[in-house]
Nucleic acid binder design. Structure first.
Lengths: 222, 222
DNA sequence: AATTATATTTAGGTACTCCTAAATTTTTAA
DNA sequence: TTAAAAATTTAGGAGTACCTAAATATAATT
C-alpha cells in the first residue's frame, strides 16, 4: 500500500530530480523538513517497492513506476491550485497549503471534473506546467531573474509557490506568469535589483528575485 | 493535537448519540468497522482530552467540546456532498466516500467558499441537515418507511448515504428527499412492501425501505 | 442466586513515521 | 595521502492506530 507520506517523498524527489539525475538524502531532508535519518528509512522502503533506485550513500533516482505516481500527485496539486483560484476565488498565496493536503485524497473522478471545469489547462496559477493525465511534464529551461543582464528584458515563466508572504509581495509588484520585466540596473553588487514592471520602477532584493523564473535567453514563454 | 482518526470517532459518536445519551463501545466498533479493543483505546484518549465522558463498561457521551468538533466535521461532510453534486456534477452515490476523505483536510476558507457558492444551504443531497457554522443541528423526529401503515402516505426526509449501490437503486425508483410515497400494502408479513411512487407501483424489500426515513405522523418535511 | 452469555477491557504485538545520538562512509582540504 | 569536515546510515526510541487472544465485568436466564 502506498501512503500519503510515500507520495510526498516521491513528489519531492521528482521535483528535485529535474535537471540532475541523482538526488541526495540531505536535499530531500531539507526540502521536506525532516531528519536525514528519516529520509534514509523511507528511501529504503520505497526502493524495496521498486519506486526508486538507491545506492547506499549515493542518492536516489525514481524508477518509471515512481515517476508515474509523482506525476499524478503533481497533477493533482496543480489542478487543485488552479481550481481553487479560478473556480472558488482563493488568492494565489493560499492555494499551495490547501493543495498539499487535498492532493493525496481526491479521487480520479474529482481530478477529471476539475480538469473539465477548467477546460483542461496546462499551467497552474504560479506558472508551473500541469502534467497530462498519462503523461510527462515538458519542462523548459529556466533561470532566475537574478541572472538576467542589466538592460535586458525577460518574461516571467513561474514563481515559487511555497511562501505565501512572498506571493503576496510579488502580486503587489505585479509579478505574475507572463509579466515582462526589464532589469534596469544590478548595481550595487549583491544589492537590490532595479526593475521596470509595467512602466514603474521598483527595487527588489536578490532573495525575492531568486523566486522568479524567466525564460532562458532566446526562449519565450508559451 | 486532534487527528483525523479522532475526528472520525467523534463524528461517529455524535451520529449514534442522536436520541440516546450513552453510546456503547460495540456500537462504535460496528459502525466504524474496527475492533472493540481499538474503540476502548481511543475512547480513553478522547476522555483524557475532555472531548467525551466515559465510565468504564458503561459507554460514552460527548462533552460540549467534543460535540463542537463533531459538528464541524459533519458540516464539512454535508457541504462537500452538496458541492460535489451541485457544482461539480457528481452523482449522489459517489459523494459519501469522497466527502469522508475530504472532510478532514479542508480549511475553514474552503468550507466558507463552498457554503457561499451553494447559497448557504441547510440540507445535503440525501436530505440530512447541514449544521450551521456555529451551531447545532436541529434534528426532526423520523421513522423508517417500514413503519408507515398500509394505505398511508409519507414524505421522504432523508436516506442513508453510505451504500452507493443502494443509492443508485433508490434513485432509479425515484426515491429522493421530498418524494411522496404511498404504502399500498405490507402483505405478506416480512415480505416486500408495495409502494406507489409518482403514479407507479413497486415492490421494495424491507431492508431497502429501512434506509428511507420519512417524517413522523403528523409532521411534514420542511 | 447461580450460571451462562454477552460486552468490554487489558495484555501483548504489528506497522507506520518520525526523532536524536552514535557509528560509518565519502568528500574536501591541508 | 592523510587528517578533518560533511554526509549518510544504523541503533534505539517515541507516538499513533490498529489487531488478536485472554481476562474480567455486566446482563440475561434458568
Amino acid at each position: 500500500m502506498i501512503t500519503h507520506a510515500m507520495e510526498d517523498y516521491l513528489k519531492t524527489v521528482y521535483l528535485l530530480q529535474e535537471g540532475q539525475k541523482k538526488v541526495s538524502t540531505s536535499a530531500i531532508a531539507q526540502q521536506m523538513d525532516v531528519s536525514a535519518a528519516s529520509v534514509t528509512g523511507m528511501i529504503r522502503k520505497l526502493a524495496a517497492m521498486g519506486l526508486l533506485n538507491y545506492a547506499s550513500y549515493h542518492g536516489v533516482e525514481l524508477t518509471e513506476g515512481g515517476k508515474k505516481i509523482a506525476q499524478e500527485i503533481i497533477r493533482h496539486h496543480r489542478l487543485l491550485e488552479l481550481y481553487l483560484v479560478e473556480i472558488m476565488g482563493f488568492t494565489w498565496d493560499k492555494v499551495h497549503d490547501e493543495a498539499d493536503k487535498l492532493e493525496h485524497v481526491i479521487s480520479e473522478e474529482f481530478e477529471e471534473r476539475m480538469s473539465e471545469a477548467l477546460g483542461h489547462p496546462t499551467t497552474d496559477p504560479h506558472g508551473h506546467a500541469i502534467p497530462a493525465k498519462d503523461g510527462a511534464l515538458q519542462e523548459v529551461a529556466y533561470e532566475t531573474l537574478t541572472k538576467v543582464d542589466a538592460g535586458s528584458s525577460a518574461t516571467v515563466q513561474h514563481v515559487n509557490d511555497n511562501d505565501p508572504e512572498m506571493l503576496r509581495y510579488l502580486d503587489q509588484l505585479g509579478i505574475l506568469p507572463s509579466t515582462v520585466i526589464q532589469v534596469v540596473s544590478k548595481e550595487p553588487f549583491n544589492g537590490p535589483l532595479r526593475l521596470r514592471i509595467d512602466q514603474t520602477e521598483h527595487f527588489v532584493s536578490r532573495e525575492v528575485a531568486g523566486n522568479v523564473f524567466v525564460a532562458a535567453p532566446g526562449k519565450e514563454a508559451n
